[in-house]
Simulated scan of single mutants.
Amino acid sequence: MRGSTESDVEPVTREAAEDPGTAGDADERAGGAGEHIGDAEEHAGDAEEYVGDARRARWAAVGTGALLTCAGLAAALLRSAGAAPALVPAAYALGAAVCASAAVLGAQGRTRRALWSLIAGTMIMALGDQFD
């Protein structure tokens, strides 16, 4: 094992891939890694797919957060009108507030945090239901 972190393989650049005289040398040096460097359409399709996936994740987080917020608020109103202890509607309202914050996080593009907020909000509502 050598102490140097530098690789013996030189990186393949776009210029080397486009120049027919050096493309074969670049492929030999990189071990055949330069085969797909000039394929810009494939990379553009991947970028569009990534943007579409991110957009769907944001909409899913916003929609789920809004739905759980409405459900939590409705449950809090129904439980407060009944003979349930005060802790039950408070738990539903708190869970709805956490789900509302998840909808905001999802709209901002923070979908992982939104997912965990949705889970936490639903767990708070379920825990409040156990006190009934």
Rank of each mutant, 00 (worst) to 15 (best):
P20Q: 03
A84L: 05
A17W: 15
T22R: 13
A120G: 12
A16W: 12
R58L: 08
A71K: 03
A57H: 03
E10G: 07
A30R: 04
A71C: 08
A17V: 10
D8H: 10
I124D: 03
A86W: 14
V98M: 00
V62Y: 04
L68T: 08
C70T: 14
L118C: 04
L68P: 00
P11C: 09
E35M: 06
A74N: 01
W116K: 07
R29T: 08
V51K: 11
R112H: 09
Q108W: 15
A74S: 08
E35T: 15
T13N: 02
A100E: 02
R56D: 14
T13H: 06
E48H: 10
G32E: 08
T22S: 09
A126Y: 05
A23G: 06
G72A: 02
G38N: 09
Q130G: 09
L77N: 04
R79E: 02
S7D: 13
R29I: 12
G109E: 05
E18W: 12
G32Q: 03
R112F: 10
G95H: 04
E18M: 11
R55K: 14
A103H: 02
D129I: 01
C70I: 14
D19F: 07
S101H: 12
R56W: 13
G63P: 09
M123P: 06
G24H: 11
G82C: 01
G128K: 00
A93E: 02
W116M: 10
C70H: 07
D129F: 06
A47E: 15
E28M: 05
A126K: 02
V98E: 00
I119D: 08
G45K: 15
I119E: 07
G52Q: 12
R113I: 10
E28Q: 12
D27G: 10
A74M: 05
A107I: 07
A54M: 07
A103L: 06
A60E: 07
V88C: 08
D53K: 14
E18K: 10
Q130S: 11
R113M: 10
A102T: 03
L115Y: 15
A30Y: 08
L127F: 13
V9G: 01
T122E: 04
S101T: 13
E15L: 12
A114L: 01
A84E: 06
L127V: 13
A23Y: 14
A16N: 08
P20H: 04
V12A: 11
A54H: 05
R113L: 13
A66C: 11
T5V: 12
S117C: 09
H43I: 11
L68E: 08
L73R: 02
L77H: 04
V104K: 01
R14E: 14
C99Q: 11
L68C: 01
E15K: 09
G82D: 13
L77E: 02
A23H: 15
D129Q: 13
A47Y: 14
P20S: 03
R58E: 15
Q108Y: 08
L118Q: 03
Y50L: 11
L87E: 12
A23R: 14
A57M: 03
G121K: 00
R14N: 08
A81R: 15
R113P: 06
P11W: 10
D129H: 12
A75W: 00
E41M: 09
Q130P: 01
D46V: 05
P20Y: 08
I124F: 05
A81D: 09
